[in-house]
């Protein structure tokens, strides 16, 4: 099953949750298909999902 992670295609297993895809770290946040996700364990990823994983970078 293919999804997009930060704009890059990635193949994952069926039933893969967001928590499995992204080892949870403080200082990181995720959006799936444009919506902020709070509980990563509850989100089972689906074919074509667009996952964005963000952290703090330099910026004014």
């Amino acid at each position: 099953m293919r999804i997009q992670v930060n704009g890059t295609p990635r193949d994952i297993d069926d039933g893969c949750t967001l928590a499995t895809l992204v080892p949870r770290h403080q200082g990181v946040a995720c959006a799936v298909n444009g919506a902020v996700v709070r509980d990563w364990e509850l989100v089972v990823l689906r074919e074509g999902d667009a996952v964005e994983v963000l952290t703090a970078f330099q910026g004014g």
Partner: peptide, 20 residues
């Protein structure tokens, strides 16, 4: 101030660790 950008390795940035 910091901006929010894609996490290259899907983890927190070195900048964030330094600021913490």
């Amino acid at each position: 101030t910091v901006s929010m950008r894609r996490a290259g390795d899907l983890g927190p940035s070195g900048l964030l660790a330094m600021l913490r």
